[in-house]
Simulated assay, not measured.
Amino acid sequence: MSDFYISLSGDLVVNGSGDIGLVESMSDKDVQHVYMRLMTEPGDFFIYPQLGTQLSMLYGMPQTLETGDFGKRLIRAALEREGVFKNRQITIEAVPVSADSIRFDVYLMGNLNEPTILSITQDLGA
């Protein structure tokens, strides 16, 4: 079953013939599923109340290894909660970007043993 193709800004993509675009590859589908969870908070989607990551909890925390580890646990919990990525290897790295922001790189192994790499930066507000 195909999914609607949604841009990283959250808009439906229209293909060249004016129809709603569909996701064509497993890698694109993975990207959409990961970003939908990373860029939303639980409760943002009424019909999917568990969907999302509470990265806003990091706001006000210091730029430390502990903060990075906490963010990685939040992301892992969000990606594993519904079983969408069951039996898939997921690696998450926390990378300090500045004194008040942290980037999380998510590596999701695909069917051909090639990782799909996604990143999201969270403002710490410090």
Rank of each mutant, 00 (worst) to 15 (best):
V14I: 15
Y5F: 13
N87M: 11
Q89G: 02
G60S: 08
F4N: 03
V97A: 08
I102K: 12
V23N: 10
I117P: 00
D100M: 10
V97M: 13
S2Y: 13
A99D: 11
L108Q: 04
S9V: 04
S9W: 03
N111K: 13
E114F: 03
G110D: 00
I6G: 04
N111W: 09
Q89F: 02
I6H: 04
E66A: 14
H33F: 03
S7Y: 04
S27F: 00
D69T: 08
G16P: 03
M57H: 10
E24K: 15
N15F: 07
M36S: 15
R73Q: 15
V84W: 15
V23A: 05
D100G: 00
V84S: 05
G16Q: 11
M109K: 09
T53G: 11
F70D: 01
R103F: 06
D123Y: 14
E80P: 03
F46M: 15
V14S: 05
G71H: 10
M39Q: 11
Q50D: 12
M39P: 05
Q50F: 12
M1P: 11
N111M: 13
E80Y: 05
L108V: 12
G21L: 10
L74C: 06
A94P: 10
M26C: 02
R37K: 11
S25T: 15
V106G: 00
D69F: 09
S2A: 15
Q122W: 04
L108H: 01
D100Q: 12
D44S: 08
E41L: 11
S17L: 13
V13N: 08
F4I: 12
I20G: 01
S17V: 13
L8H: 07
A99I: 10
V95L: 14
A77C: 02
S98K: 12
S2F: 14
T40E: 12
T121H: 01
S2K: 14
M1G: 11
D123R: 09
E82R: 09
F45I: 15
I102N: 10
Y48S: 06
F45W: 14
P49M: 02
L55Q: 00
A126P: 06
I117F: 00
L79T: 00
S27G: 01
E93W: 02
V84C: 01
L8A: 10
L12A: 09
S25D: 09
M109S: 02
I92P: 04
L108P: 02
E114D: 09
E80V: 06
Y5P: 00
T67R: 10
V106H: 01
I6V: 15
A99P: 01
